[in-house]
Amino acid sequence: MKARSSVVPSYVRPTPRRVAGLPSPAWTVVLVAGLVVAIELYARSGAVSRLDLIPVSEMVSRSVELLGDRDFVVGALLRSVLLICASFTASAVAGVAVAYVMARSRWVHRAVKPYVNVFYALPIFALYPVMVVMFGTGVVPIILLATLFSVVIVISNALVGFESAPPIVTKLALSLEMSRSQQLRKILLPSALPDILAGLKLGLAYAIIAVLATEFILATTGLGQVVNRAYNNFNTVDMYAGIVFVSVFALLANLALGAALNAFDWRRR
């Protein structure tokens, strides 16, 4: 009440600790819970056909059931996880290597940088049909596309890291006559590490998006294909279960990698 009578506008007042007795994390929970309850009630109210929407509780219980389904776990989940890991690893290694070469060679830097800058403006998924024709509907086109899609974000972040090494340290390396590999191990990599880690986190998110999107559009199996097939078979329950599963999976994977990588980040210690 006192705050309301103040002439000081809210945007310059100190941020309140609580609003209506709740701190901000509690409001986050309220927001999510409100959304879930609203969907649940809307689905149960009968205003919408069961072919279009099912209650959240059913989505969740079905997606937990899916975890007990051997076909789903081995055929779809495990396969997608392996594809994501393979493309993430490939793009992490290749991305840091390319960024290192760019940081070392001025010519390469100038040749590649313009393409890195505009890469995400290009709808790279348009290449997927080409790759499918060349390599079939197996794992090769998915890994290729996911690696390509996630490598560029790793490159651009790692490059920022390599270039942010303080000039004074680079000079020190020169005066100590360190070899190239010593410079890389003792100076460039440690100083670029926080940016590389930020790039890797994004790289995982991009790899997940690419693998699921390509599986969703055209594949024989995999998590994305589970959703696609359920949609095409009018199996609304499985479709929503798949969507919930994929969303939770992506969220947990990103959070887990984020937490794991933060442990290496000396800026956060």
Binding site: T15, L31, A205, I208, V227, L251, N254
Partner: peptide, 26 residues
């Protein structure tokens, strides 16, 4: 403009943004 509500709402939006949206297309 509201620091409090940004702090409350942003985690949800960041989470939504990290979900591969294409599976929501159906």
């Amino acid at each position: 403009l509201s620091a409090f509500w940004s702090r409350a709402a942003l985690p949800v939006v960041y989470a939504l943004n990290s979900v591969p949206k294409i599976v929501l297309y159906p």
